[in-house]
């Protein structure tokens, strides 16, 4: 690759920037081979790869219950859901690759603990009801976050999100159904459902990220039309939805301060523990080490399969080349 780095801004750059700015201003979409500012590219690689990592790590808390699902039906559903999460991770890794990141780089960054992923997956799943709470609250928050991302200015990211959002609604409904079944079961089952909601409520609200005044990158992401709504706006919308849904479950949200303020038209909820949030993101959550170790072992255990498949493909190609050589 010949670089002309000595001249920081070329004519092609200027033209590219003008075309990029015009597309963003017209709420258009940026495709992989279009010119884009380096910061836009970097921001997207970071966001899309973190999103992919979250899907991949997100398989673990639920996979924890596959062998202990209470019925064959629930087990089949849970396996399908965990398989979907793997698929979502792969759609997103592909989207990040169109920006110039390589799959190997991203996988390595995750395993080596250099990459971030959603803090929610570092909380343990202690009971079967947690699988329900994850579907209802965690996938619910993810949907609230992801639906606007379908219109992200970077087209491959938006296309991946469209595919993902279609599949997520099944995830949320199956979680809700698990909780509803438990809530209508024995007093012990209902208590188990309530306990799961109690533990996942605050971490789910934190999934939208820090409050707007403490989220420095949000503004630029919104200007670039990657993000469409602020963290607090999305959190508000989510709280408004689950306040109604929890009534159908016959459970309660563990938040004594929760109320709707008519004057500001805002949901007032308890103060979230942002110190805990940052700690969990930085690796000090209850399950961070366990999650990364599991991912590392799975990756290393699979190495021989990847190598064997690559070697088989190489030999098949050699055979093909030899056969066509003889024929000629």
């Amino acid at each position: 690759m010949s670089t002309t780095a000595a001249t920081p801004s070329t004519v092609a750059d200027d033209e590219g920037r003008a075309a990029f700015d015009a597309l963003i201003a017209a709420d258009g979409r940026i495709e992989p081979r279009d010119w884009m500012p380096e910061d836009y590219r970097k921001t997207l690689i970071r966001q899309v790869s973190q999103h992919a990592h979250s899907e991949i790590i997100g398989m673990q808390p639920e996979a924890n219950w596959i062998t202990r699902a209470p019925s064959l039906k629930r087990k089949a559903i849970l396996m399908a859901k965990v398989q979907d999460e793997a698929g979502h991770g792969l759609y997103l890794y592909s989207a990040a690759e169109t920006l110039g990141a390589t799959r190997d780089e991203m996988v390595e960054a995750l395993i080596e603990g250099k990459a971030k992923y959603s803090s929610i997956f570092n909380y343990p799943t202690r009971s079967w009801a947690d699988v329900g709470a994850i579907g209802w609250l965690v996938d619910g928050a993810a949907i609230a976050n992801q639906v606007p991302l379908c219109r992200a200015s970077y087209a491959p990211y938006g296309r991946a999100m469209v595919r993902i959002c279609k599949e997520e609604s099944f995830h949320q409904r199956q979680g809700f159904e698990i909780l509803l079944t438990l809530a209508n079961g024995t007093p012990e089952q209902k208590a188990m459902a309530q306990d799961a909601v109690n533990r996942f409520y605050a971490p789910a609200l934190m999934m939208f990220g820090p409050p707007d005044d403490a989220s420095p990158n949000s503004k630029q992401s919104m200007a670039w039309h990657i993000k469409r709504f602020s963290n607090d706006d999305l959190r508000q919308r989510f709280v408004g939805m689950i306040v109604e849904q929890v009534k159908v479950l016959g459970l309660t949200l563990p938040d004594p301060e929760l109320r709707y303020d008519e004057e500001t038209k805002q949901w007032i909820h308890q103060e979230l523990d942002w110190v805990e949030f940052m700690d969990v993101i930085k690796g000090k959550g209850p399950c961070n080490a366990q999650r990364l170790e599991r991912r590392r072992v799975a990756h290393e255990d699979g190495a021989w399969v990847r190598e064997a498949a690559a070697e088989y493909a190489r030999k098949q190609q050699l055979k093909l080349a030899e056969a066509s050589g003889k024929a000629a």
């Binding site: 002309t4 092609a12 992989p32 010119w35 690759e97 110039g100 491959p156």
Partner: peptide, 17 residues
Amino acid sequence: MGAENQINDTNATGALQ
């Protein structure tokens, strides 16, 4: 990096070789 370099090093979907 100029636009030309980016294009030459990527395939139709933009992924690096």
